[in-house]
Amino acid sequence: MIEVQHLTKYYGRHPGILDVSFGAEKGEILGFLGPNGAGKTTAMRILTCYLPPSSGMAKVAGYDVLDQSLEVRRRIGYLPENVPLYHDLSVSGYLGFVARLKGMQGRSRRARIEKVVEECGLAEVRNRIIGKLSKGYRQRVGLAQALVNDPDVLILDEPTVGLDPRQIIEIRELIRNLAGRRTVILSTHILPEASLLCNRVIIINKGKLVTVDTPDNLKNRLQRGMTVEITVRGDREAIRGVLETVTGVSSVTDTSAPSAGTCAFRVEAREGFDVREPAAQAVVTNGFGLLELAPVDMSLEDIFVELVTQEDIN
């Protein structure tokens, strides 16, 4: 559905994005992940034909963004980071205007507006003036606007930014329901959001593509050995000595203990070893009280920091 090859965009001499290639299949939710200023918005603006690329090629639904811009624009829905709303219009007036701009006529337009108003939960505010709506509702109006032409490709730039936690959950739910037959590209700098919503994640940093993979694969790829967090009652040094002798353990580091008389460690195992059972056994047979033992999953947060710092070192 989306095909991007060697895409580059310069702002003057400063590169917004540099030699980025990726693709997206029909029905996929693709996450753009990166720190602020990484080039996420630039990439999205190129895909939506708002900015032309300096070099490289981008195709949406088989149409080139430069040569067949109108065809591309017919097939996309775009929610920019600053939601483009006219504050003097009512919700239904605004959606009607956007639908007309997108070339929808008469009865089909009204039916479609009716549908997106339902889908985005705007029924009770449809006659309200947009300027008087809360941020959460404005975001929904933005989303409804992007959906009004029933696009094949939905491009959402930071759709949850500036919302309160409940609104964030609602918008995420909405986005998940919207996927399916549509291709969705969304950008975010909130990592859990990407792992929650996306089938695949593209990490970009300083305009360059760092990696493309599924959230799970990313975790597996970077997590070389297992990490376990363990909390034990007893003497710190003695317990450390016991843990270090367990087969497969590569390092034991202190972490802050939850309460007096107990101590906590982060135990890292060599690749291919599951140290949970032997470690528990060693603690118990040596007469210490095992309070807690949990494997640590590498969060996308860690992966992100790791990849981005690796990139910077290279």
Binding site: R73, R74, P84, V98
Partner: peptide, 9 residues
């Protein structure tokens, strides 16, 4: 809103 206007067909 220019971003809306000029990404519409």
């Amino acid at each position: 809103t220019a971003e809306l206007l000029f990404t519409c067909p």
